[in-house]
Amino acid sequence: MKDNLARRKNRMGWGFFSPSVILISVMVFIPMIYALFTSFMAGPPVNMHWVGLQNYQAMFSDKTFLTAASNTFLYLIVQVPIMLFLAMIISVMLNDNRLKFRGLYRTAIFLPCITSLVSYSLIMKTIFAPTGIANKLLMDVHLIGAPIQWLTDPFWAKVLIIISITWRWTGYNMIFFLSGLQNIDTEIYEAAEIDGASRWKQFTRITIPMLKPIILFTAITSTIGTLQLFDEVNNITKGGPGNATTTLSQYIYNLSYKYTPNFGYATAISFVVVIAIVVLSLIQLKAGGEDK
């Protein structure tokens, strides 16, 4: 009986997801298998030969790789939680029916993620130049005595990248929360209000649990986004000073296109990134209670 139901469900389910399964298999999985083979090869692109695990072993002694990996994880650990929390707070506020001009606020906060990269990097570099607005403001309120070298100091350059990603992607994540909030029945809040629950309590006891699927979604997609971070570093700091802000994705790109191509090594690093994402996603899925 139960088996029958599962079989029927499967059959109907395939009707719904087979177009996607076919498309993704052709567009991603086939190239992925090809790339996996490439990751065991080396040599000029038109004449590659099998080298076994050599590409994977090379990473351990490659300082650029190690720097890129530690930068990437630093961005992940510091930036993703800040951004998601901020996005959630903003979305909850923007969902308040009493608030006027919500459309304008939402559009304004969404705008950063559609700003073209060219202007975005130009603006960031101008604002955070030694004599830029950011330093002026900080010095005016006496938070700092001397201008911060945002772009040329290894530590502050990383901070700048984190600020930049947060600025650009908070509004983007806000959309998912806003849309997710609509799935929560208003009656639950009304009931809580009657019970005298404070707003903070409503937030932690109702909003967060109800938003769990979306929080999980944004956490995983942001993790993926950060591990594949390329645009910001490539445009604002070019990975510099030195390699202080470079990321794995930028290194993969450089190995494929900036330098004389070494596709084998580049794809090997890609698969290390994949493994890292899979592990992190599994942890998040587990923590998000997603096994059912």
Binding site: K63, T64, P154, G240, G242, N243, N254, K258, Y259, T260
Partner: peptide, 16 residues
Amino acid sequence: GSGTYQIEDVLKDPVS
């Protein structure tokens, strides 16, 4: 040679 940019990227941190 064929790796000027690559060597230079390796060299950036040592130079600083």
